[in-house]
Amino acid sequence: MMEHVLSILLISAGIMVVMFAKSFMKKVMGLGIIVNGMHAYLVASAYRQGGVAPILTPGMKLGGFVGSAVDPLPQALILTSIVIDVSVTAVLLALYVRAVESGETP
């Protein structure tokens, strides 16, 4: 529960930065904070107390494995999402740099 609250706080902080920051760079950083807050939310949702990696090793009982293996999908989703976020941030910053260079400061 605490993890969920913290991640929602992180998302809220990011929204505040996006809404109230005057600098474009800070707005992009705010966007990054929102996305990372969302990642934290998903990690918190997928957390399993005493969970094991979802790899069935020899000697492991199937019943116990099913009962304790964590869901691998959220980590795959977050990993993909991080890559996308980095790409979008890079494109936004590249556009910003070009805008500044050509005297079109946003």
Binding site: F24, K27, L92, L95, Y96, R98, A99, S102, E104, P106
Partner: peptide
Amino acid sequence: GRYNTALYYAF
């Protein structure tokens, strides 16, 4: 002003 337009759309 194309970079500004792109940012206006992208953000």
